[in-house]
């Protein structure tokens, strides 16, 4: 897959970091403003997809990247399950228990474990979407060659 023209490349260079940052904002403020892990993860994945589409598949080694995203995805899902399991042993013994102190409603550091769940679900969603996209790109390269 070849890259696009100079114009797209330059705009991508300027914008991809900001798109990534916006995704992180959506994830970390998921318990205060609209958004959360799902939306933010998809935006983060969108930033990377934009980068790959603009610069072509030569810019990264696809195989290595796919392995990395797979590992990230699995690790994030595992951490979510471990966090949920921790609720079974701490405080009230309930799966998915919110065991951390909840703080003031409306502050950034509040709502106990929910922001942490958000972060890891966001990681999982981003890595899963990237894995799907990279698998398609790799398949296309292999068919073409």
């Amino acid at each position: 897959m070849n890259g696009m023209t100079q114009i797209v490349k330059k705009v991508t260079q300027l914008m991809s970091g900001l798109i990534f940052m916006y995704g992180l904002y959506i994830i970390t403020h998921g318990h205060l403003t609209p958004g959360g892990g799902f939306a933010g993860g998809a935006i983060v994945a969108g930033g990377f997809i934009l980068l790959i589409l603009a610069f072509g598949s030569k810019v990264i080694s696809l195989r290595k990247e796919e392995t990395q995203t797979s590992i990230t995805e699995s690790a994030a899902l595992l951490i979510v399950i471990l966090l949920a399991l921790a609720g079974l042993f701490l405080g009230v013994h309930v799966f998915f228990n919110n065991y951390l102190p909840q703080g003031q409603v409306g502050e950034l550091i509040s709502a106990g474990v929910i922001p942490i769940y958000n972060i890891f679900i966001g990681m999982e969603v981003a890595a899963a979407l990237l894995t799907i996209f990279l698998a398609l790109v790799i398949y296309k390269e292999e068919v073409a060659s």
Binding site: G30, H31, L32, T33, P34, G35, G36, S70, E73, S74, L77, V80, I81, A84, F95, F96, N98, Q102, G103, V105, G106, S110, A111, G112, V113, I114, Y117, N118, I121, E124, V125, A127, A128, L129, T131, I132, A135
Partner: peptide, 29 residues
């Protein structure tokens, strides 16, 4: 403790749903 009620429902009252959803996405990938 979450101001966004949807996130509160999603990760607290209905945590199982979210876990199942994450598993489905993982399996699909």
């Amino acid at each position: 403790g979450a101001a966004n009620l949807v996130t509160g429902v999603l990760f607290d009252f209905r945590g199982y749903d979210t876990l199942g959803e994450a598993t489905i996405l993982f399996t699909a990938a």
